[in-house]
Design a protein around this nucleic acid. Structure first.
Lengths: 245, 245
DNA sequence: AGCTATTTGTCCGTATGTATT
DNA sequence: TAATACATACGGACAAATAGC
């Protein structure tokens, strides 16, 4: 069957791509500012003269860009975003870093186990292979909205009970203090970006296609001895990082 | 018609999501390492007992995660990735930073115009509103593969001719030197992540759904006077950033 | 509270286009 | 040229969530 009376494929560009571009343009032009919502899929399909599924392809693409948020039964809302700015420095501290940008911070301990260091972890923490490590899985929220999910490893012999200390205080800094580390510094941070997997979507309450900023951070005490290695996954819609020199 | 004999929707999880998870698991388990390719869509559809479109939904999701690369007429290849590590420090230099990780670096000047500073740029560069700025659009490649696309602004009165200097030398550092700035430092860097737009896809030769790491960087001379503000867009599959303290 | 209409989500089937082998 | 395999678009049916009466 012929595609459409009003739109056709032009120079190899798929119909749904053309429609995505037009919708993106409409939003940028402020056409839907009154409602803050996109018209129903059927309406758009008629307007562009295509099948509903073709419109859905376009909406899915824009949703994965974070521009739209389709909600079953309600409609498709147009996303507005403002990011938390998270400073990375010698004394990177989660709570202190973004504390003034939100009203309330929350830290949840999801799990808490001891495991032997594999080759990668052993090298990073400068410990012999197989050294027991405490692994914490934590979730951080700002104003009830999930911001990051972290996996953190500590040398188990030196920091026995850090899971409980963290759960009580809700802060790594406070937990360290209880265990005799008065101060610590960020040695290195590796920043990358990736798509969210199923687990991220659930924990961070994201929609499929969301993207993450990922940090791999190594902290050491004031003698330069590694005390903590952490991989944190942040919703890229929610945060950005700042490096001041 | 009933969905499938072999797979059905479980607790509200869509079939294509379940299949995506299974394929992701197969890849992680190394099931397709011999060929480096996924079996044809029809084969997968039969294997999972679903319609070909359902498999396509799963593949599309994994493709947007960068795990798969479907190629029309050929098949669906399984992506392997290794990233260039890009250091961010007081003396962040593009070429020197990743120079030892690649054989050949290339810098292209895409465009070169003068425009007045808007409110945002004026504030960042600490100049009066409307001050003329030179704007350069550049594309950087490593071993012929595009790595980043940048928009860079310089005060026009102080750095007249920097476009030509950059084009000749292929380096900001060299261009600054020609214009009397022997040294400069990175004041601040803001790092965020976003989806690639149409322009990014073309310039950086990415596939739709690709994600970017974006830096907003401010450089100043040794007197602390801002000399350059740049927004750079990096393919997140290609690079990561490192911050050493 | 309950029913109905609206709206998005999922899945199937079919046909045709386009790129590669 | 022919076969293969992914890409696009259409159509239909039903499920699930929400909103409104």
């Amino acid at each position: 069957m012929s595609p459409s009376a009003t739109m056709k494929r032009k120079n190899g560009v798929a119909l749904w791509r053309q429609i995505a571009d037009r919708i993106r343009g409409e939003i940028a032009a402020g056409d839907h500012d009154e409602t803050g919502m996109l018209p129903p899929e059927m309406t758009l399909a008629q307007k562009f003269g295509v099948n509903r599924h073709t419109v859905r392809s376009a909406i899915a693409a824009l949703a994965s860009e974070g521009i739209l948020e389709p909600m079953q039964g309600r409609g498709t809302i147009i996303a507005r975003k403002e990011r938390l700015s998270f400073p990375i420095s010698l004394r990177t501290r989660f709570t202190a870093g973004i504390g003034d940008q939100v009203k309330e911070m929350e830290a949840l301990l999801l799990s808490h186990i001891t495991e032997p260091a594999n080759a990668d972890l052993a090298a990073r923490l400068q410990l012999p292979l197989g050294t027991p490590l405490i692994r914490l899985e934590t979730l951080r929220k700002a104003d009830t909205r999930p911001v990051s999910r972290s996996t953190t490893w500590f040398p188990a012999d030196r920091f026995a009970g850090i899971g409980e200390a963290y759960q009580k205080s809700g802060s790594i800094t406070a937990a360290f203090k209880m265990l005799g580390v008065a101060d610590y510094v960020r040695i290195s941070t590796v920043i990358s970006a990736s798509h969210a997997d199923t687990r991220d979507l659930a924990d961070l309450e994201l929609s499929p296609g969301a993207i993450l900023l990922i940090t791999q951070a190594l902290n050491a005490d004031m003698d330069g001895v590694p005390v903590q290695y952490a991989i944190s996954r942040f919703s890229a819609d929610t945060v950005e990082f700042t490096v001041e020199n």
